[in-house]
């Protein structure tokens, strides 16, 4: 085979594009089909565990952001949710990657990510307080608590999952 005809860089980038797109699609599918797995009083969004993926490969930064953008299109207030949610997710993921870069222990990495995501829920609380005039701090507190729970359960699942699938490739 004549190697000059086989452009390695194009090949990788096309695969990157399709893999990113498919993971984004999977995010949306999981968000809608397995919308809420409820554990009694605790409602937990399974798709939140996708946030951890970005820690393993930078491809998932775009994949998760894109997934959030498409999923947010389902909301009736999407012209606000899509840009705000998309941008917030993107920035928070970048922040998580930067902060956890030097942490060696995987569990600590995940815990820090979960805490940052829970803290970042002020974007959702801000939106709710502007649109519906709901009290900001109370909304932030409840949304952040829900997020933290979702991320905790998601972390446990991700921990088992990453032993079976290599997300770094």
């Amino acid at each position: 085979m004549n190697k000059t005809f086989y452009n390695v860089s194009t090949r990788t980038s096309v695969t990157e594009i399709t893999k990113t797109a498919l993971v984004a699609a999977l995010y949306v599918a999981v968000t809608t089909v397995l919308a809420v797995v409820s554990f009694g009083a605790i409602q937990f969004r399974l798709a939140e565990m996708f946030n951890y993926l970005a820690l393993y490969h930078k491809r998932y930064i775009v994949a998760v952001t894109l997934g959030v953008i498409i999923a947010n299109f389902m909301s009736p207030t999407w012209p606000i949710d899509v840009p705000v949610g998309g941008l917030a997710t993107f920035l928070v993921i970048l922040l998580c990657r930067a902060v956890t870069k030097k942490i060696k222990n995987d569990i600590t990495k995940m815990a820090v990510t979960a805490l940052i995501f829970a803290f970042s829920m002020f974007t959702v609380a801000g939106q709710l307080s502007i649109l519906y005039h709901l009290p900001f701090f109370y909304t932030w507190y409840t949304v952040a608590l829900g997020e933290l729970l979702s991320m905790a359960v998601g972390g446990v699942i991700m921990n088992i999952l990453k032993k079976k699938i290599d997300f770094t490739k």
Partner: peptide, 9 residues
């Protein structure tokens, strides 16, 4: 990527 995603959802 968005078009591919939409196609595969």
């Amino acid at each position: 990527m968005m078009s591919i995603s939409l196609r595969f959802i």
